[in-house]
Amino acid sequence: MTARPILKTLGHRLFQALLVGLAVGTLTFLLARLLPGDMAFRVAAGRYGYDNVTGSAADAVRLELGLDQPALMALGAWLWDLAQFDLGRSLISGEPVIAAIRHQLGHSADLAGSAILLSLLIGPPLGILAGLRPGGVLDRALLPFAAGLRALPQFVLGVLLIVLFAVGLGLLPAAGYGTMEHRLLPAITLALGLAAVSSRVARDATLAVTASPYYAFARTKGLPEGSAFLRHGLRNIGVPVTAYLGVQLVYLIEGVVVVESLFAWPGIGHALVHAIFARDVPMIQGTALVMALGFVLLNALVDLACFGIDPRRRKA
C-alpha cells in the first residue's frame, strides 16, 4: 500500500520524459528541415569548408541525414534513432554527440551541484533565522534583498559580479574553467537567485511551524527551545523548502544556459548555445534532450526527497 503514491509519481515523471523526448525530437527534426537553402550543402560547407563543397559531398550528407526521404518517413526514422539513443555525430566536429555530451554534462552537473549546495547554505539558514524573529532586523533586511535579487536576471547578476569581483577588485577570474576560483563566480551567480527564493520559503515555513499547535505543545510539555525546534520544526520546514527546489529547477536549468555562456564554462548550456549558433542540428538535439531529461529526472528526485522527509505523503 505504502509504495503506491511513489510509483504513481514516478510513472508520471516517466511519462513526462517520453513526452519531452518526443517534443525535442520533433522540434529538432523540423529545425533540420526548415533551415533555409539546401541543408545538405550547408552542412557539407560547415564540415569541409566552403571551398571544398562538391555535389557528391552534399549527396553523402543528404543520405546520412535522410534529407531525401518524404517528411513523415524521415520523422519516423529520426524518432526511431532517438528511441535507440542514437544521437548521431556533430555536424561540425564529427565527434559522436554522446561523447561530447558526456564530457559537458559533468561540467554542468559540477556547476549546478555547487550552486544548489551554496544556495542551501545561504538561503534556508537566513530564512529560518528571519522566521524565528518575524518583524526583526534580519527579517526586514532580508525582504528587499530577496525581492531585488528576484528582479535581477541571472546574466545581469553575473555581469555585476564580474564587474565587481573580477574587474573592480581583481580577486577572481572573470571567466574560464579549471581551478576552484573559476567555479566561484558562476556558482555564486546561480546560488544567489536560488537562495533569494529559498530564504523566503524557509522564512514563511518557519513562521507557520512556530505558530502551529504541535509546536506550542512541544514547548508546553517542557522541551527546551532548541530541541523543540530540532525535533518538531526542522523537518516540517524541510518539506516546503525541498518542494520549492523542484519549482526552482526551471531557474537552475535556464540559469545554466545563460551563466555558462557568460562565464565561458564548458558545460552543456554553453554547448547548446554554440550549437544553435552553428546550426549543428544533432548537437542541438542532444544537448536540449539531455537538459530536458535532466530536468525531469531532478524533478523525480525532488519528489522522492519529499516522500522521504514527509511520511504522510507515502500514504493517502
Binding site: Q16, L22, L249, I284
Partner: peptide
C-alpha cells in the same frame, strides 16, 4: 504536462534556432 516538463527557456531557444 509536456510543456511543463520542458524548461521554458529551452523551448524558446529551440524555436529561436528554428528561425534565427
Amino acid at each position: 504536462d509536456a510543456f511543463l516538463a520542458l524548461p521554458g527557456l529551452l523551448l524558446v531557444l529551440l524555436l529561436a534556432a528554428l528561425a534565427p
